[in-house]
Simulated scan of single mutants.
Amino acid sequence: MEQFQPELETCPVCGSTSNCHIHDYYARSIIYFRSGRKLKQDLCIMRVFCDSCKHAHAILPDIIIPYSSYSLFFILFILGDAGLHTVEQLCEHFDVSEKQFHKWLTLWKSHMEQWLGMLDASETDNATFYRQLFLRDSFSAFSMDFIRLTACSFLQSHRNPVLTRPKNARYRQTSFSPDIFLF
């Protein structure tokens, strides 16, 4: 993020270039899993402001699912273990409710179908898709491609908000090429 230059970016709402600048930062909590433990950490999130359309935009790293407290990889680790353990064991180990687990599983299947297409998704089991996801050269490339295809982040649970001002503004989730790759 230190190398991110908002003044070189195009505003995802109005399309103007060279009108964005760093506006502020805010703290956001993220839940993740490391060394067998569920952890919570605060992250510093940058917001940029477009002088042209007066919209602020949060710049989120790939590991953050918009509007979710759980990191993407936390959810993927749980879903990746789904075939190896019972739902009860997973929920106890990762300290999540069964209701939350089933929401993630439903969302996983829906997004897998959106990504692969209905026919390929019906022929691909969860474990195969999971391996394909993690064997990619760059998760960031998958993340950006998924946003372009669906207009939301992978495993994001609800649609993005509708903007009312200016009248021609549309919410558009976009992604920036990262300076580093997670794997």
Rank of each mutant, 00 (worst) to 15 (best):
S29A: 14
V162E: 10
H93K: 07
L84M: 13
A56S: 15
C44H: 13
F176T: 10
C20S: 04
R148D: 12
A58T: 06
D42Y: 15
R136A: 10
P166Q: 13
S29Q: 15
R159L: 09
E9G: 03
S122E: 13
H85R: 13
N126M: 10
T164E: 12
P166L: 09
Y32C: 05
R159G: 13
H102W: 07
L149A: 14
L60A: 01
I147A: 06
Q173T: 14
K38W: 10
R165A: 07
R34S: 13
Y130Q: 05
R136F: 00
R47K: 10
P178D: 04
I64S: 01
M112I: 08
D95S: 11
L116R: 04
K103P: 00
F142D: 08
I45T: 05
R131V: 04
S68L: 08
F4Q: 11
T174N: 14
A169T: 08
L149S: 05
Y67A: 10
E98Q: 05
T10D: 02
N160G: 15
R47S: 11
C20L: 14
R37D: 13
I31D: 02
F139K: 06
T164K: 14
C53D: 01
H55K: 13
P61S: 06
L135H: 04
E88S: 12
L119G: 03
M112T: 09
M118W: 10
T86N: 03
P12G: 01
F146Q: 09
S143C: 12
C14T: 07
I147F: 01
E9K: 09
T164W: 05
H85F: 15
L90K: 02
I78P: 01
H57I: 15
A82G: 04
T17L: 09
F4H: 04
M118G: 09
T106W: 01
N160C: 12
K103Q: 12
L119W: 03
I59V: 15
F4W: 14
L116V: 12
G80Y: 08
W104S: 02
P161Q: 07
L155Y: 06
R165M: 10
L116G: 01
P66R: 03
T106V: 03
E7R: 11
E9I: 02
L79T: 03
V96S: 02
I75E: 03
T174G: 13
V87I: 04
T128G: 03
I22P: 04
D95P: 00
S18A: 07
S175M: 09
C20G: 02
